[in-house]
């Protein structure tokens, strides 16, 4: 079976009705946020767009979609008890894993880019600038490639990887940037932010201890470092995933017992 056919099947598997509805809901968060800001007249400019992109698209839509599609790559087959059909066929496990990875990256990228474009359209591309939007349009697929690689790898190692993935993205990633020192370098989002290079939100009323903590650890990562680190994370995660899936035994626990 060719890689193209496998990819077509994984696309079919991903684009099932319930998942399409979920994608539409997640993709609409950014534009809805933008509409609310437009209506309230709050930050209707580049800073507003940057804020929505960072909070709603990068930190929410992109990350959640990556968790959903990345974590279900292999673990979904195990919990769905369809894994025997995959691992007893004369198809290379590496090919299966890469097909699932590529389809996840494409879908997460397309949905997140659409969310980004819709947000930009609401703020007005003329106001934001085409270059600014284009930068996001190519950083988003790269970020999707990194997150999906990590979560696909996790799905080859754990039967239920969603909880650790959510914990990492919404607990660790949100807070390490506030811890003084180099802890922020443990977060994928830190490097994605460097690449996306969005302006920080406009200075408003001091937000107290969070702002103070944030100021104690200013970003020191260069764009090159961000590219290299994210590329390395993706390559290492995929390698781990390929090795784990190639050597692992995938039998639902209840069956083994």
């Amino acid at each position: 079976m060719s890689f193209g056919e496998l990819l077509r099947w994984t696309f079919w598997d991903v684009l099932r009705t319930r998942k399409v509805v979920m994608m539409a809901v997640l993709a609409s968060v950014g534009p809805l946020f933008a509409v609310v800001m437009q209506l309230s007249g709050d930050q209707v400019n580049v800073a507003g767009y940057s804020f929505v992109l960072q909070v709603a698209v990068y930190m929410f839509t992109l990350v959640l979609l990556s968790i959903v599609f990345g974590c279900s790559a292999i673990a979904g087959e195990v919990t769905g008890r369809t894994i025997p059909y995959l691992v007893t066929r004369p198809v290379s496990r590496t090919k299966i894993l890469l097909a699932k990875y590529v389809s996840a990256v494409i879908i997460v990228s397309v949905v997140s880019v659409l969310a980004c474009l819709a947000t930009a359209a609401i703020f007005g591309i003329g106001v934001i600038g085409v270059d600014r939007v284009l930068k996001d349009v190519w950083v988003i697929p790269f970020a999707a490639a990194v997150y999906c690689a990590v979560f696909v790898a996790l799905s080859t190692l754990l039967v239920r990887p969603v909880l650790p993935a959510v914990f990492y993205t919404f607990a660790i990633e949100s807070w390490v940037s506030l811890i003084p020192g180099d802890f922020s370098k443990l977060s994928i989002l830190t490097y994605v932010r460097v690449l996306a290079d969005h302006e920080p939100p406009e200075a408003g009323a001091p937000s107290g201890i969070l702002e103070m903590l944030s100021n104690m650890s200013p970003p020191t990562i260069t764009t090159d470092q961000a590219w290299t680190t994210l590329s390395l994370i993706a390559v290492i995660a995929l390698t781990v995933g390929v090795i784990a899936f190639g050597r692992g035994e995938y039998v639902p626990n209840e069956e083994a017992a």
Binding site: D13, G80, R81, T82, P84, Y85, V87, T88, R89, P90, V91, S92, R93, G246, R247, P252, E255
Partner: peptide, 20 residues
């Protein structure tokens, strides 16, 4: 185990009846 040469000659009908 994970051997396509063997698997191409095997037909397997699992016990569970879950599908796509």
């Amino acid at each position: 185990f994970a051997n396509p040469s063997v698997q191409s000659r095997l037909g397997y009908c699992p016990e569970g009846d879950t599908f796509y």
